[in-house]
Amino acid sequence: MNWLLAMSQTVLFVALAPLLAGWIKCCKCRLQNRKAPSLFQPYRDLLKLTRKQPVVSDQASWIFTISPYIIFSAMVLAASIVPLIAVDLPTSASADVIVLIGFFSFARFFLALAGLDIGTAFGGMGSSREMTISTLAEPAMLMGIFALTMSASTTNLSLAIDFVLDEGLVLRPSFIFALLSLMLVAIAETGRIPVDNPATHLELTMIHEAMILEYSGRHLALIEWASQLKLMLYGVLIANIFFPWGIAERITPGDLGYGLLFIIGKLAFLSILLALSETLFAKMRLFRVQEYLSFAYLLGLLGMLSHIILEGAR
């Protein structure tokens, strides 16, 4: 029963990801005085792409055609261990938050290889930049998460959320630092402004889009879907770890329904914040990103040190 629930939660996660992307686009359009496309436009795009015939370069090797499947499954696996509407599901014991970061790096490894596979300048450029940014972002993210897991003394996400729920609303300086650091990392890792612009194909600035320039058809659909999933994963992580209230602790239809409503509300709110920041800020130069990410790293480190000095003192 619990396994079934865990699986359906994962399916729900995967199914909702394009909706979140649509909602963010909607908010952004409104904020920028533009007419918004339908909320369901991302679904239509994905469907359209799967129906198209994929065109693959004759220089491509099997790495190029297999990568979309690997990237997508890595993201689905990551979604299966992040509690969305209920905690204490059996899948959360199979992998903890360090493994979650491992899944992200697995996906990125193959995405970068696929970028290099065709042998165009764009692909290599995208891969190189993506690896640079993620290399700096990964330790920053781990710092933020360590600050958190050391308070909860567990790296299991579900149990960490339980811990926050049990503690109630306590103002922990380490959590505030960790939250800020994770938000900065999330923006960098999901390729949003000010680090990368998902809507551009300008060679000087693009990172993520440069790597996937050669993809088409179902391959492109899988990669697009995977990046929407990644965005949602970061959103759910931030929402459920720092503000877990509302998540279902017991498995009853009522609790689960509330859990769903709460998470949709939380994500909607976070998306508005994201759209606002994307509207207010301009994209950075590539070599400013290191300063941005080292700031995130510093925040994570401060979070951990404040946990050690202020909270863990014995």
């Binding site: 790096s105 990125r108 290889l113 290099l116 596979d117 690896m131 640079t132 290399t135 330790p139 710092m143």
Partner: peptide
């Protein structure tokens, strides 16, 4: 914890290094 963070950076750098090596050796033209 600072050492742990350095370990995280090392792991990320290693991934970048070996993406580069495999990509340049085996992929492309």
């Amino acid at each position: 914890p600072v050492a742990a963070a350095a370990l995280a950076l090392t792991a990320a750098l290693a991934a970048a290094c070996f993406v580069n090596v495999f990509g340049i050796l085996f992929l492309g033209l």
